[in-house]
Each structure stands twice: as structure tokens, then as C-alpha cells.
């Protein structure tokens, strides 16, 4: 197993409220995620998993504790530095896709490159890179369609291409299949498996254990603390196998029809 650590949190705390009434959304959470891992985060609502994802996504800062992302302690960084980290190191996949409605698929994928501060690419290279990202999610022929002209599954695939385009060290997916039907969900899971096989580190929040079963490791959070952390390697492989068989069947059926 690869020993490079992508995420390390040390006694992470996030405390809301002031004075006497204080609520700890995270109450001393320590986890380590290695490069190439595909991890699910589960927990009931209010467990603190959203807060954790926000902090891991550099959208929020912990009240106490340390967060080391790809070897860099980022717990004390300011807004601008965090924006930089999000741009360079992280790829987000949201439940509701969050594509900009007035831009076509290609422009949406280009967006993260627009906010790059180093190695600012010329426009043609951006287009090429975005096109390559769209190709990896199988949507080259939809590059110039607006989000409203795409199905939910296709929109989520555009969002995945957007998450990949800046070559991040970590992909954060927040219920990526939450708004999708089974067929589209399978497509998205298949894509996540592909990314994982190519060495991406993926962290996915879900409340469906069926979905979580696809990942090699599942972390359970309860009351802001780590509840359980179990490996699921064998199971995940089986799930992946089954998924690919189902997909192949659907595709051949679709082909005949």
C-alpha cells in the first residue's frame, strides 16, 4: 500500500456558539487517509460529517486541532491561501452538480483553470485540457450543451470532469449519487471506480450503505467523533465487479434496441 498520506487530522475540533452554550460539531477527530484510497464517510445527520467535509474541503477552518493536507499544515491559513489550496489540490463533486447554468459543459469544466494563479494556461490549452477531461467522462459530444440540455447523470459527469481538470490530490464527493436514478448512479459509481483505479484519492459522503459498500474503507462519524473505521476491500471489489457486469448488460441491451 502506498504510504504517502494525503489527509491527516489531529484532534480536529469545530465549536459553534459563544459563551456558555457551545456545540461541538467536531469533537477531537483524528483520521489518516493515504494516497489512492477510496473512502466513504457515513453518519446520521448532525453527526458532524458535513462539518468535517467543509474543513477537509478548505471551505471552513477548525476551531482547534490540525489539518495536514498533502504534507502541508493548513489549519492556520487565511481565506486567500485556502482559495489557492482549493484550486490546486482539491476537486469537488456536489449532490446537486452545481454547474453554472449559463455556461456550456466545456466552459464549466474550464472554470477551475480560470482561477489558477500559477501556470496560467492560454485559452487554447485550457480548452484542450477541458476537452480531455470531458473525454474521460465520455461527454465529448456534449461539450457545447448547456446544463439544462443534459440529463442529471450527464450533468454530474460534467461536474466530475470539472473536479479532475486541475489534477487535484484529493476528490471530495458530497452525496454524488443523491439526486440520481439507479442507472445514472451506476454510471457515476463506475466513473469513481475508474478514477480510483487510476490512483485518485477519493473521499465520499453518503448515507446509503449500498453506495458506501463500493469503497475500500468506510468511516463512521457520530457526535463529532470517530465511531468506526472499517476496511471493506474485498466487498468493494465484489461490488465493482457486479456493477460492471450490470453496466455491460445494459449497454449490450441498449445496443440491440
Amino acid at each position: 500500500m502506498n504510504e504517502r498520506i494525503i489527509i491527516e487530522t489531529v484532534d480536529l475540533k469545530k465549536i459553534y456558539g459563544m459563551g456558555d452554550i457551545q456545540v461541538a460539531a467536531l469533537d477531537g477527530l483524528s483520521i489518516k487517509i493515504r494516497q489512492g484510497e477510496f473512502v466513504s464517510v457515513m453518519g446520521p445527520s448532525g453527526s458532524g460529517k458535513s462539518t468535517l467535509m467543509n474543513i477537509l474541503g478548505c471551505l471552513d477552518r477548525p476551531t482547534e486541532g490540525q489539518y495536514i493536507l498533502n504534507g502541508e499544515d493548513i489549519s492556520g491559513l487565511d481565506k486567500v491561501a485556502l482559495a489557492n489550496i482549493r484550486n490546486k489540490q482539491l476537486g469537488f463533486i456536489f449532490q446537486s452538480y452545481n454547474l453554472l447554468p449559463r455556461m456550456d459543459a466545456l466552459e464549466n469544466v474550464i472554470l477551475p483553470m480560470v482561477y489558477q494563479r500559477e501556470n496560467n494556461l492560454p485559452s487554447e490549452e485550457r480548452q484542450e485540457k477541458a476537452m480531455a477531461a470531458l473525454e474521460s467522462v465520455g461527454l465529448t459530444d456534449r461539450a457545447h450543451h448547456l446544463p439544462k440540455e443534459l440529463s442529471g447523470g450527464q450533468q454530474q459527469r460534467v461536474a466530475i470532469a470539472r473536479a479532475l481538470v486541475n489534477d487535484p490530490v484529493l476528490i471530495l464527493a458530497d452525496e454524488p449519487t443523491g439526486n440520481l436514478d439507479t442507472q445514472s448512479s451506476n454510471e457515476i459509481l463506475e466513473l469513481l471506480h475508474d478514477m480510483h483505479e487510476r490512483g485518485r484519492t477519493i473521499m465520499m459522503v453518503t448515507h446509503e450503505s449500498e453506495i458506501a459498500d463500493h469503497t475500500g474503507r468506510v468511516i463512521y462519524i457520530r457526535d463529532g467523533k470517530l465511531d468506526a473505521d472499517r476496511l471493506n476491500g474485498k466487498n468493494a471489489k465484489k461490488m465493482k465487479q457486479k456493477l460492471r457486469e450490470t453496466m455491460a448488460a445494459t449497454v449490450s441491451k441498449g445496443g440491440e434496441a
Partner: peptide
């Protein structure tokens, strides 16, 4: 607002 949030998530600084 959502667009602003998304742009921020993708790396837009406040000044952007």
C-alpha cells in the same frame, strides 16, 4: 449566491 459559492469552492479569492 450559489454561483458565488461554487466559484469560491473552485478557488476564486474574495478579490476575484
Amino acid at each position: 449566491t450559489r454561483e458565488i459559492g461554487l466559484r469560491q469552492a473552485l478557488g476564486a479569492r474574495p478579490i476575484d
